[in-house]
């Protein structure tokens, strides 16, 4: 009986938006809490994914494909951003191994 009731519910756009709000909040919290630059980067990816879910859910709701095109561009920019960011992290960590975000408070190498 319970399974029949569950199967009858159709997830609306609101469900997806609430999910992406939760994902964005978790990503933001992680970005503020963690001090390993690599993990801070992963938290940024979480927040980008939350935005992507919002884009796709609303694109489907409005029947407008532009939202999915925007997600495509977000993916491309995220890939470029990860490449540059990891390059910076490599050159920092090569110079001082085990550096956390707190150790990098000044630009002086």
């Amino acid at each position: 009986m319970q399974a029949v009731v569950l199967a009858a519910v159709v997830p609306t756009t609101t469900y997806y938006l609430v999910l992406s709000a939760a994902l964005f909040g978790i990503g933001a919290t992680g970005l503020l809490v963690r001090r390993n630059p690599l993990i801070m980067f992963m938290c940024i990816e979480l927040m980008l994914n939350a935005v992507n879910v919002t884009f796709v859910a609303l694109a489907v709701r409005f029947g407008n494909i532009d939202g999915q095109t925007a997600v495509f561009f977000v993916l491309v920019v995220a890939a470029a951003e990860v490449v540059v960011g990891l390059g910076i992290i490599i050159s920092i960590l090569r110079r001082r191994p085990g550096a956390t975000a707190d150790d990098l408070a000044e630009l002086k190498g």
């Binding site: 938006l17 709000a21 909040g25 919290t29 503020l32 489907v60 709701r61 409005f62």
Partner: peptide, 28 residues
């Protein structure tokens, strides 16, 4: 934790508040 919960909470409040105002388009 307060910042994260606050961001999520405000977003959810806005989403739930705007639930009925989003017009229905033709689904893809």
């Amino acid at each position: 934790a307060v910042v994260g919960a606050g961001v999520s909470g405000l977003l959810v409040a806005a989403i739930v508040g705007a639930k009925d105002t989003i017009p229905e388009g033709t689904p893809l």
